[in-house]
């Protein structure tokens, strides 16, 4: 019930934000949601003890799927784009997952990184897809309803908020039930999982698929926000950013990725405004501080407050 209350409050707040705030803030909120969804997917994967350094692969697939619909097929509906982004990513994850679910630890991390860099290489070489420059996309309707110029982003933010909240609630349900415990079981002791009669491979595969679909949804949302896609979406620094945000927030809460994504975007905006040549270093120092003082992420602060209250 608490989850439902938080979900409704988030929806109301984001809707208010979408209707009332200036365009730049709407844009940032969309990016925050997009990254939050990707990182929440990463958290699903981390439940089984695996870190992917290649979620940019699915982020990029989601973004390009949405953009190609607009560019190649002249589909300009944002809802279709978001669903297509998630579906395209899920499809590829379903294939690559067959291989990746057999790997663990650093091997899993590096292999996922390798796949994302293969896509990057393909996109950079592909003149039809705009090579390193990428290309623009235009979304003008939402579920078939035409939108006046200027309000599109506001509507997309609300749509993104609905998608993100629904996904977050689903993940919340998943984590609380048998599947969440089983995933933790796979992380703790695969031998025992097998000797109880369940398949660790399948648990990893399904969680990988979920994480991939969520990254695709995030990618499509980001593409709608920016109105442009380029190979940077699948580059390793993008994947690294997701891991960064995951560590920043911690893994204890469904909300942590979204809070952390907001802080990350704010930090980056401020840092690049006031120290344009040093913004990466600023982020690095922030990460160092987190690892040294709050190794379980920013969510530790919330936990501490609750305990002392």
């Amino acid at each position: 019930m608490k989850a439902a209350a938080v979900a409704i409050a988030s929806l109301v707040a984001l809707t208010a934000l979408a209707l009332l705030s200036p365009q730049w803030l709407v844009f940032m909120a969309m990016l925050m949601l997009a990254k939050g969804v990707v990182v929440l997917g990463l958290l699903v994967l981390m439940r089984t003890g695996l870190v992917s350094f290649g979620q940019g692969l699915y982020f990029g697939i989601g973004a390009y799927a949405a953009a190609l619909l607009s560019h190649g097929l002249h589909v300009a509906d944002a809802a279709v784009m978001l669903l297509a982004g998630a579906a395209a990513a899920a499809l590829i994850a379903a294939l690559l997952g067959l291989l990746l679910a057999g790997y663990r630890d650093i091997f899993f991390a590096m292999l996922s990184l390798a796949f994302s860099m293969i896509l990057y290489g393909l996109l950079v070489k592909s003149a039809a897809l705009g090579s390193t420059d990428g290309f623009n996309l235009h979304a003008r309707t939402f579920f078939g309803v035409a939108l006046a110029p200027g309000v599109e982003r506001r509507v997309f933010l609300i749509a993104g908020a609905v998608f993100a909240v629904v996904v977050a609630l689903l993940v919340h349900r998943l984590f609380r039930g048998h599947w969440g415990r089983l995933a933790t079981g796979v992380r703790d002791n695969e031998l025992r999982v097998s000797y109880l009669g369940a398949s660790p491979y399948r648990a990893v595969y399904v969680n990988y698929l979920i994480a991939g679909a969520m990254a695709g949804l995030g990618g499509a949302l980001a593409a709608l926000a920016v109105g442009h896609v380029d190979p940077e979406t699948t580059y390793w620094t993008t994947s690294g950013e997701f891991v960064f945000i995951a560590i920043l927030g911690g893994t204890q809460s469904i909300l942590a990725p979204f809070v952390a994504a907001t802080i990350f975007e704010a930090l980056r905006t401020v840092a690049s405004q006031y120290a344009p040549n040093l913004w990466q270093m600023s982020l690095g120092l922030a990460m160092l501080a987190i690892i040294m003082f709050l190794p379980a992420g920013l969510w530790t602060l919330a936990e501490r407050r609750r305990r002392s209250a």
């Binding site: 415990r181 703790d188 002791n189 031998l191 025992r192 000797y195």
Partner: peptide
């Protein structure tokens, strides 16, 4: 050696 899920 007991094979358990230590964090649960």
């Amino acid at each position: 050696i007991p094979q358990l899920f230590n964090s649960l």
